[in-house]
Design a protein around this nucleic acid. Structure first.
Length: 476
RNA sequence: GGCCCCUUCGUCUAGUGGUCCAGGACGUCUGGUUCUCAUCCAGAAAAUCGCGGGUUCGACUCCCGCAGGGGUCACCA
């Protein structure tokens, strides 16, 4: 592995974190962790108009929920504090002054209307809009009331991107962009260059929407006398239908919603990492530790990847199956139906243990386990709609259930004894499991599906099981 | 429109000139596992490797062109 890396996740507090943002954060985190370096959270709050109250805390909560722990951040401090751009204005002013002094920044004298006219002209001429074509000859002294622009030096760039590979761009990509807005806040374009340098960031990992701006950042870095960090540009995560970037409009969900629905953080992380990255082997399931070891930016896909919730669901189930019963109980008990509260912990743990092999996400738990906690009313349609049982007449069904009852009355309801008695009943009644077991299962659960019959009854216990059989008998 | 990025089964992908009439996974379908749902296991269908040229004995892999998709061209990030 290379020298220790310092990476950062630098969201703007304009909303919740969705999978796209999480992936950027995850990859930056992985790079830092695998090199023994630091992962920094920096809040890019330079657009006061778009800022959403509570968004910063929401982002922090999301990172914490996923276990993407950062070493330095607004709520943690660190060597390069503060970590909120709105608190670093003095620093941007200083760097801006350097540019002014060296003749590389100037006040933008145009009104919004004039700018608009320039743009429309460019569009009418089917040309890209370049501000530097309108660079004023004698710009006014910058007094902070006008935007401050970078005086660029257009040229070609050959550069290497850790994900995209070798890239070339011509001088037409370079333009005079705004450094400091007329409200006194820096733009992203300026602030992040300054911060990444001051915070000694070694790898900048960000989304594809910035790819065409990177030459401008290089140009600015040169003017500032800074060495740019390693750049890694991630392709977009695509929405489920179109080829469009996954956005909140296309149903991109808050990652915290996945946690609330009962997805495991490690499954979410495994899934997001494997969306556009693989280690070259056929391994699909990775623990977080595996990922830290195996990850590399140069194996990140260059094309966009579509978000496939089915695959996430499968992966979550696979991770659930790897937990021990105690771990599973700790993570999942909060998802049991409210009615479970009156049962003791040992009982709840048994119930959860028996669902482990069929659980895909914890949100299924109420439906899967409700009959362990409450007596559901008899549902005749479970028998009349059953493809085998519906072929028998009522007296036959009733007789079958009576036979089962009298045997079960003798049982101690241990798993062994129940299994043995169920087997014996198959012999004595001469019935197929599809008939006999279905009938007992329906009587004892009143549910469309449930875990294995002997397991279910062993957990329910003798009294509850026999009561339910009686209730079924009465209804027949 | 300029510039830039991308293009292998429905989806995520392996693949860096021959071992690929293209492998794995999800999903789908079929069968099995003493009931159901699920798990697990076995199997199947599923990609003229975007298209057209070229280089080569040989190309998914290299080169050129084209098409399609995406991004960007904000006092947003």
């Amino acid at each position: 592995m290379s020298d220790s890396a310092r990476t950062r996740f630098a969201p703007s507090p304009t909303g919740f974190l969705h999978v796209g943002g999480v992936r950027t954060a995850l990859f930056a985190w992985l790079v830092a962790r695998q090199s023994g370096g630091q992962f920094v959270l920096r809040i890019e709050d330079t657009d006061k108009a778009r800022e959403v109250a509570g968004a910063e805390q929401h982002i922090i909560d999301s990172l914490n929920a996923l276990g993407l722990e950062y070493d330095e951040g607004p709520d943690k401090g660190g060597q390069f504090a503060p970590y909120r751009q709105s608190e670093r204005l003095a620093s941007y002013k200083q760097w801006a002054q350097k540019l002014i002094d060296s003749g590389r920044a100037y006040a933008d004298p145009y009104t919004p209307a004039e700018m608009q006219a320039f743009r429309e002209d460019a569009q009418a001429a089917k040309q890209p809009f370049l501000y530097r074509n309108h660079r004023p000859e004698n710009p006014p002294v910058w007094d902070g009331t006008k935007p401050l622009r970078f005086k660029s030096e257009p040229k070609e760039y050959e550069r290497h991107d850790a994900v995209m590979g070798d890239l070339h761009t011509g001088p037409e990509t370079i333009d005079d962009f705004i450094l400091i807005k007329s409200d006194g806040y820096p733009t992203y374009n300026f602030a992040h260059i300054v911060d990444d340098a001051e915070m000694k960031i070694t790898h900048v990992i960000r989304g594809q929407e910035f790819l065409s701006s990177i030459p401008n950042y290089l140009n600015l870095s040169e003017a500032l006398g800074l060495t740019p960090p390693i750049m890694a540009t991630m392709p977009h995560i695509l929405g489920p239908d179109g080829n469009k970037k996954l956005s909140k409009r296309d149903g991109a969900k808050d990652v915290l919603d996945y946690i609330r629905d009962g997805y495991l953080p490690e499954a979410l992380i495994n899934f997001i990492a494997s969306l556009g990255w693989n280690d070259g082997t056929e391994q699909e399931l990775f623990s977080i530790t595996n990922l830290v070891e195996a990850f590399s930016l140069d194996r990140v896909q260059r094309s966009g990847a579509r978000f496939d919730e089915q695959r996430l669901l499968w992966m979550n189930g696979a991770h659930i199956r790897e937990l021990t019963v105690d771990e599973l109980y700790d993570r999942a008990s909060g998802f049991l139906p409210a009615e479970a509260a009156s049962s003791d912990e040992a009982y709840r743990k048994q119930v959860i243990a028996v669902t482990q092999e069929r659980l895909k996400y914890f949100g299924e738990l109420p439906e899967l386990t409700i009959f362990f906690f409450v007596d559901l009313p008899v549902k005749p349609e479970l028998i009349t709609g059953h493809k085998q049982l519906s072929k028998l007449d009522m007296p036959a069904i009733k007789d079958l259930l009576e036979q089962a009852k009298s045997s079960l009355e003798q049982s101690d309801f241990s798993l062994n004894d129940l299994t043995k008695r169920l087997n014996d009943l198959l012999e004595t009644t001469g019935q197929k499991p599809a008939v006999l077991f279905s009938l007992i299962r329906i009587a004892t659960t009143q549910a469309a599906f449930s875990p294995a019959l002997a397991d279910t009854m062993a957990i329910l216990g003798k009294d509850r099981s026999l009561q339910r059989i009686d209730a079924q008998l009465v209804a027949l």
